[in-house]
Each structure stands twice: as C-alpha cells, then as structure tokens.
C-alpha cells in the first residue's frame, strides 16, 4: 500500500502564505528601518522571480532571458515619467503593459523551439535586448543609464521619502496584490491546465486542450508581472541601468527561484528574500569572498533540498504526521 499524504485546503494555505508575506514585510519595516532600500529591491526583484516561476515553475519552460521583460518594463516606466507621467501607479501600469507586450513577442519566438534550443533562444533574446538598450541611448541612456526620474506622490497623497518607507510600502502592497491575483489564477482551471502542460504537454493535447495559446497567455502574464517589477525598481531607485536587462540578472533570478522552490509563487518570493538578504549580509562581512560563500550555500541547498527551501515546510508537516503530532488529512 502506498503512502497516504494530502494537501491542506489550497485557498486557506494561500491566505496564510499571503499573510506571512505581509507580516514579514511589516516586520522588515519595523526591524530594518535603515535597510528599506534593500527591502524595496527585494520586493521588486520578487516580481521578476515570480514572473519567471509562472513560465518555468508552472509551464515548464526554462528561460534565461526573463530580465529582458523586467528591464523593458523599467525603461518604459522611466520614459513615461520623463515624458511627464508622474503618478507611480500609472507608471507601474505602463511598465506592466510594456512587459506584457514584450512577453507576448518573447513567447511567440521562444515557443517555436523546444529543449536546449529554446533555452539558447532565451539567452539570445536577452542579449539582443541588452545590446539594443546599450545602442539606443536616446531612449535608455545607454551605459550611463536613464536617470532624472521624478515621481509624484502616490494618488497625490503619499510622498516618497528619503528613508524609503513610502517606496517599500508601495512595493510591498503591489507585491501582495499581485500575489493574491496570481494565487487565484494558478488555482483556476487555467492554472491547472498550465501545471499539467508543465508536466506533460503531449498528454494535455490528448485531453483536448490547445497548449500553444495557453503558453502565449502565460508569457504575456509573466511579462506583465516582470514589467511591473521593473517599473517599481525604476520608481524606487530613480534610475534604470543596463543591468536591468542583463543575462546575469536573468540567471540570478533562476538561482533565486531554485533556492525558494519552483512551481510555488511563495517559494519564488522566499527564494528572492533569502538570496538577496544573504547576499547583503555576506558581502558586507566578507567583501572579497562572498560569492564563494553564496555559491557553496546554493550547492548545499540544491543537493540536500532539491525542491527548494519552501518544501521544508511540507517535510516538517510530514514528520509531525509520522510522529502523531499532526493529523494527516484525507
């Protein structure tokens, strides 16, 4: 007889995780008032990693070019601002729209191939976008980056302060709202189809579902989320540089996703927070060898917790059930 395991109610679980992210954010606001810049970067990067999770963790398509969508959202929001759009919420909308359009195009190209060739295509695309951003200095500021972003108070009421409080709360609220919407989407029939496609697209076709349109929608949605993250970073830092569309950034996003656990929105957020938090602490403690320490840590996680840090919660639950400390549901 095989083992009997079960999942808790999905919606209740999502609500608890969303509440945990909100609480962690509020705790960061109180406990680390001098590091709110870092916290805001974590929040904006979480958009990138969550967007990558939609494509890679859910739909099963490995990509190393996700930062292209993030960066294009950042450049779009920055250019909109320089053209006179000061309202931060509208800037994020512009970033999301730019990311969605870029995601649709990105998907249309990438989905023409499969496997390793597909992965190479994603690298080629991010390099193309990076090079284009370098050359089109009138729009992007080239290697100097795009600066001079002047953001109006949110809804005309909440001014961005020097300590980064408003910026962090703005990023956190948008992240929570995005996670709530995405939680509903991944639990919907569309999300179920997406997870099934990620595991076996051929089987999904024999069950009567078209795979390509679902993947294109996913790339578009993923682009919108990444673009929003880019816009938030542009708003909070006041500058957009070439690093926002770099291959390195894409690769780091994948590392954060693997660290937290792919196929889970909250794993993506946890991976981002843990990686960037450790990066900050270790690089401050040892500025010369911090990458080695981070590298070793990642190897340990991949070898011993291959499903990511968030899978540890499930392992603890199973252990508790084995020792009779927790009722295992059917």
């Amino acid at each position: 007889m095989s083992a009997v395991t079960a999942r808790p109610s999905p919606l209740r679980g999502d609500f608890i995780k969303l509440a945990a992210v909100a609480l962690a954010g509020l705790a960061a606001l109180v406990l680390f008032p001098n590091d709110l810049g870092l916290m805001t970067r974590i929040a904006s990067s979480a958009f990138l990693v969550v967007s990558l999770d939609l494509v890679t963790g859910y739909a099963g398509i490995a990509t190393l070019g996700q930062a292209a969508l993030f960066g294009l959202g950042a450049y779009a929001a920055a250019n909109a601002n320089l053209a006179g759009l000061g309202e931060p919420i509208l800037m994020v909308a512009v970033g999301g729209l730019a990311g969605a359009v870029a995601g649709l195009i990105f998907g249309a190209v990438v989905l023409r191939s499969r496997g390793l060739a597909q992965l190479v295509l994603t690298i080629a695309l991010v390099q193309l976008v990076h090079e284009a951003a370098n050359k089109l200095s009138d729009i992007t500021g080239g290697s100097d980056g795009l600066s001079g972003i002047d953001v109006a108070p949110i809804l005309g009421a909440f001014r961005f302060d020097l300590y980064g409080r408003t910026g962090f709360v703005f990023a956190l609220v948008l992240l929570l709202a995005t996670l709530a919407v995405l939680s509903v989407i991944v639990r919907s029939p569309f999300g179920l189809k997406l997870r099934a496609i990620g595991r076996d697209p051929g089987r999904v076709r024999t069950l009567g579902a078209a795979v390509m349109p679902a993947l294109l929608v996913t790339f578009t949605l993923s682009g919108a989320v990444a673009g929003m993250g880019g816009a938030i970073e542009a708003i909070s830092t006041g500058v957009v540089g070439l690093d926002s569309v770099s291959f390195e950034r894409s690769a780091m996003a994948l590392v954060m996703l693997v660290l937290g656990g792919s196929g889970s929105l909250y794993g993506a957020v946890a991976g981002t927070a843990v990686f960037m938090g450790l990066e900050s602490i270790i690089s401050a403690a040892n500025p010369f060898h911090w990458l080695i320490i981070v590298g070793v840590l990642l190897i340990v996680v991949v070898l011993f917790v291959p499903r990511g840090l968030t899978s540890l919660a499930g392992d603890v639950r199973r252990l508790l059930a084995i020792f009779g400390l927790r009722r295992d549901k059917r």
């Binding site: 999942r7 029939p189 179920l192 997870r195 099934a196 595991r199 069950l207």
Partner: peptide, 16 residues
Amino acid sequence: IFRSLTVEENLLAGLK
C-alpha cells in the same frame, strides 16, 4: 497521469 497533481486535479484536467 500528472504525478505531482492530486487525484482531483488530474480529473479536473480531463473535464474539458
């Protein structure tokens, strides 16, 4: 079958 999905989710995937 989709091994990482639950029985119910597997069935939902076949509902069209």
